[in-house]
Simulated scan of single mutants.
Amino acid sequence: MVVTLDVEGARASHFVAGTSPLAELMACLHTLAEPEHHPESREWLARVRDGLPGTLVQALNYHAPLWARYRCRLFYPVQPPLDRSLPAELDALRRLDPRTFAQLAAYAIRGMTFAGAGEIAGGAAQRSFIRASERHSFSRGELARALVDDPERFRDGLVETVERCAAAFFDAEWRRIGPGLKDTAAKVGAQLRREPPSTVLTSVTPTATGTERPARVHYDKLQSGVGKVSDRGCFLIPTLHGWPHLILKLDETDLPLVVHFIAGDWEQRPGVPQSLIRDRLAAIAEPGRFEMCRHLLGEPITTSELAKRMGVSEPQVSRHLKRLRQVGLVTSRREGRMIYHRLHPQLVLSLGSDVLTAIMR
Rank of each mutant, 00 (worst) to 15 (best):
E335S: 05
P273Q: 10
S275G: 08
R334N: 06
T209K: 08
G118Y: 11
V57W: 12
A59R: 08
G352M: 15
A124R: 07
V327S: 01
T31P: 08
S139P: 06
E305F: 11
K182R: 11
G116F: 10
W44N: 04
V226L: 09
R334Q: 12
R278L: 13
P345D: 15
E195R: 02
S313E: 15
I237D: 06
A68R: 11
A88M: 10
V159L: 07
V148S: 08
W266S: 00
V317K: 05
V2N: 13
L201H: 03
A64P: 07
R140E: 09
G352V: 13
V312F: 13
G51S: 12
I339A: 14
H14L: 00
L257P: 06
H30I: 04
F15P: 02
V162F: 14
L321P: 00
C165R: 09
G189K: 09
G116K: 05
L143A: 03
P81S: 05
R309W: 06
G242C: 05
T331M: 03
E134F: 15
S353Y: 10
R73V: 01
F154Q: 10
P80D: 05
F169T: 00
L276Y: 08
G233P: 02
I247T: 12
G328P: 04
E252I: 04
V57G: 07
A358Q: 11
V272G: 12
R94P: 02
T55G: 13
E24Q: 09
S128V: 06
G157P: 05
R176H: 13
D156A: 14
R176P: 07
T207S: 15
F169L: 03
E314C: 01
R155I: 05
F114A: 11
L45H: 13
S353R: 12
I301N: 00
A208W: 12
F290G: 01
R289Q: 02
L25R: 02
L60N: 09
